[in-house]
Simulated scan of single mutants.
Amino acid sequence: MPTSDGETIILPAPSPTQTYVTVSALDAGHITLPERLFITDADPQKKRTVPSMAFLIQHPLPEPTNIIFDLGVKRDIESYTPAQHAHILQRQPVTVHPDVTDSLQKGGLHPSDIHKVILSHVHWDHIGTPSDFPNSEFFVGSGTQHILAHGDGPYYPAELFHADELPANRTFEFPPTANSEPGKASEQQIPHTWYPLAGFPAVIDFFNDGSIYIVDARGHMSAHLNLLLRVGPKKWVYLGGDCCHDPRILTGEKGIAMYDDGRGGVRSVHVDLDSAAEMVKRVRLLMGEGRVVQQEKNGDRKEVVVEVVVAHDEVWRKGNAGRFWPGRL
């Protein structure tokens, strides 16, 4: 299976009957981030109001399937838990409109038209309003239901989540990877197999047609997911969720911040800093630090482009207004 060769990232070539997906960004609220908590060498007083973007992915065959990656901020801000409210007070100003439903309707879709929702993770600014999607199956990383009930380590305790946030009968976890914590996976799993691809240790071919790859992106949370999407013969899109919170970390201009944890030590915004830093290195290679190619059947290698978008990139948001639904990436 193509994966990597030194600094060359190898992606699989399109099949003769290759399916391609379309991707559209969705506005899904805005939050405000104190830079000192996210990037190194930050002005301790500086804050940035950034989007919490979602994405509409449309898969055409064998019948059209509408998928959303992440749901952004809840429309009803009062429905967050008291502990979430206390956290949100530190992220003001927060805007809830347009949310995902508003953004879909702008292009003529309704939440009832969405077949599947994939969540990168279940923090408050990505969970949105699942009840808006009555016909959708929800797909999450292994251990997510355990996180919603019990938290994800000391810095993300249970009170920062709703245990019943997702519809139990329509929510499916991807299977555990070799690095998953034992005993925390849900019994309601989908029968997929992880394998290495493009420098990532574990991906899943979601439709088994090389169009949508689920990437195990643990680091920010233990069940964090990214997506690698084939949008054209030589064009891919990588949706990085919260692999980092500032694009300058991806370019190498800044590093991941460490700050006082309130317990006599230091912490980052990630539950596993080493894994998060490793993810950043892998994504940088996709962005051009390495050579990205497709391995053709005859052994030739053709260079391809991978566009990387992370959830809170306000620079990308400002420069790509025409690529929000009904526009496309």
Rank of each mutant, 00 (worst) to 15 (best):
F55T: 15
L89M: 12
S112K: 15
F69E: 03
V100Q: 07
D76V: 02
G153R: 00
T144V: 09
G183V: 09
L89Y: 03
P130N: 09
D70R: 05
E165C: 07
S180R: 04
G153H: 05
E187W: 02
S112P: 06
A149V: 03
F55E: 13
D76F: 07
V96M: 04
G108P: 06
Q84N: 10
Q105D: 04
R170A: 11
W124A: 14
H126Q: 15
P157D: 06
G151T: 06
F172C: 07
S131G: 00
F69V: 01
G107R: 01
V96C: 09
G108H: 10
I147P: 02
V96G: 01
A168L: 14
K74E: 02
D125E: 13
I147L: 11
P175N: 04
P51E: 07
A54H: 03
H59D: 05
V94Y: 00
P191C: 06
S52I: 01
T144C: 08
L166E: 09
A158L: 02
W124Y: 15
P93V: 01
L160Q: 13
G151N: 07
I68Q: 07
H162Y: 14
I67R: 02
P154M: 01
L160H: 12
P176H: 09
A83R: 15
S79A: 14
A168I: 14
T65W: 00
V122D: 04
F138H: 08
P134D: 02
S136N: 05
P157S: 09
T129V: 06
P154K: 07
P154L: 01
E181K: 14
D164Q: 08
P51G: 08
I68N: 04
D102M: 07
D125W: 15
S186C: 00
Q58R: 15
I127M: 06
Q189I: 11
L71F: 08
D125H: 14
P167H: 10
I77C: 03
Q92S: 10
T129H: 09
I67T: 01
V117H: 03
I147A: 04
T65R: 13
